[in-house]
Amino acid sequence: MGALIITHDEHGNSQVLEPDREFALVLGDRTILADTRTDLIEALNPGYADLLAGPNGQREAAWSRYTFLLGAADALASTVLAAMVNAGDVEITALSEDELNFIIPPDRIQARPFIGNWTSRVPLVALRSDYAPFTDVPEPTGNVKFLDPSNETTFIDSLVEAGIAHFMVNESAQVAA
């Protein structure tokens, strides 16, 4: 059935009085309504559903979720750092070059994952699949926000946990199904 993307008005209202879709994902100025998590991700990452239908569907879809969250991690890290600097919560000059390179790596795919306890006031945004049990690298502790491309549910849940989105389930749609 696909997804329906609704842009909010100037007051933040979505103008949807009684949505008939199973899921809603609220992202800033828009709401995505869909009956499946696949359709939600397709609305965020066009071409995703086609990858699933291909001969190597699960592997290609997993890579697509991963690369999408790489970009989201960079955007989130940059936004959080800028907000903290603008609010006076952190001095950019007080951060070491290593800290800055872990917070906003020049090339997140090539960057070595942080190991240890992250103690910076600025949270480290990391991809869960870069760490154990998916790799041999131990998961960092401390002030870390994880984005998780492992499957469609963890993908969406991690966007919510990071504060990027709000996820809702339409209970009346479930009853009718």
Rank of each mutant, 00 (worst) to 15 (best):
T67Y: 14
D50H: 03
V175Q: 14
P106T: 08
I103A: 03
T38C: 01
P140A: 11
W118S: 11
L40W: 09
P149G: 09
N13K: 11
T7G: 12
I32M: 11
E161I: 07
V16F: 03
M1R: 15
T79L: 03
I5R: 14
T153Y: 06
A173N: 12
A73N: 06
W63T: 09
R128W: 03
V80L: 15
D29S: 14
F155G: 02
A83T: 08
N143K: 11
A43Y: 07
T93D: 13
L25D: 02
P133I: 04
I41L: 09
A111Y: 07
A3V: 12
D20F: 07
D157G: 00
D148Y: 04
E139K: 14
E99V: 01
A165Y: 07
S64I: 05
F146R: 11
F167C: 06
I32N: 07
D157S: 06
R121G: 01
A132C: 05
G116T: 09
R37K: 08
R59K: 11
M168N: 03
S64L: 00
G12W: 05
L27V: 15
V26K: 14
R112M: 13
V122F: 09
G142M: 00
A177C: 09
Q110P: 02
Q58T: 03
E10D: 10
F23R: 04
L69D: 01
E139Y: 03
V137R: 12
A111P: 07
L159I: 01
K145V: 14
A165C: 08
S78C: 02
S150P: 00
M84N: 02
M1D: 06
A43G: 11
F167Q: 13
N170Y: 06
S96V: 12
F114Y: 15
Q15N: 15
P105S: 05
T7L: 15
T135A: 12
V80R: 15
M168Y: 04
D74S: 05
A3S: 15
R128N: 02
S158W: 11
D157V: 00
Q58K: 12
D74V: 03
L95S: 11
L17T: 03
E139L: 14
N101Q: 02
A126H: 04
P113S: 12
R112C: 01
M1F: 10
A162I: 04
V16H: 07
A176H: 13
F114N: 03
V80C: 02
E152N: 10
T67R: 12
A87Y: 05
G28P: 00
G88R: 14
H8L: 00
F155L: 02
T38R: 04
W63Q: 10
V169P: 00
T7P: 07
Q15L: 12
S64W: 07
A177D: 11
G47V: 13
L33E: 03
S64G: 01
L124C: 05
S120A: 14
D98R: 14
A73C: 10
I109Y: 10
A53W: 00
P19T: 13
T36K: 09
A126P: 08
I41G: 05
M168C: 01
S78D: 04
P105K: 10
G28H: 01
P133F: 03
D50R: 07
I109G: 03
D130V: 06
G116V: 10
L27M: 15
T93E: 15
M168H: 05
